[in-house]
């Protein structure tokens, strides 16, 4: 009887050692979750994420964003892909409708872009702050149009 008890204990000990928490399945779940979260950051490229200094206007528009060249306009600067192109005050101070530094950058940007689908459509998305004045928006749109991009989209925040 004692011998059997001893065997049982030994068995139980072995079984206990074998049934330690299996981390492999947990790792699978976490890795999948990690990739999912990372992918949700990258979806749509830079077209979807406006710079932190830009508060987009709210709208009832339903059209989805397309991958394109993105111009961000905050209260002080005009940016393309995170690069500061010119200041808002400099753009407004000029009597000309064309914003020269922006036009130069857009012309350089056009052949360099790797995304042929975006360039085929020649689309520029403007991520403008909700408080910018129309005369600035008009100048930016005019410059975009003169730089060989006939299609313009305005990025907005969907109203809740």
């Amino acid at each position: 009887m004692r011998r059997t008890r001893g065997r049982r204990k030994r068995w139980a000990g072995q079984r206990h050692a074998e049934t330690g928490i299996s981390l492999t399945s947990m790792m699978d779940v976490l890795t999948t979750l990690l990739f999912f979260v990372l992918k949700s950051f990258v979806t749509g490229g830079d077209a979807t994420t406006p710079p932190p200094s830009v508060s987009l206007p709210k709208s009832t528009a339903e059209a989805a964003m397309q991958n394109s060249t993105v111009i961000a306009i905050d209260k002080g600067t005009i940016l393309i892909g995170g690069d500061r192109i010119t200041t808002v005050s400099a753009a407004l101070a000029d009597d000309q409708m064309l914003i020269a530094p922006l036009a130069d950058r857009l012309r350089r940007e056009a052949p360099a872009s790797r995304d042929t689908s975006a360039m085929r459509k020649h689309l520029v998305t403007i991520q403008g702050d909700q408080d910018i004045e129309f005369r600035l928006l008009q100048k930016v749109m005019y410059t975009v149009n003169q730089s060989g991009y006939p299609d313009i989209a305005l990025a907005v925040l969907k109203k809740a």
Partner: peptide
């Protein structure tokens, strides 16, 4: 984020 496509 949504888009309004428009005529310049």
């Amino acid at each position: 984020i949504r888009a309004i496509e428009m005529t310049p």
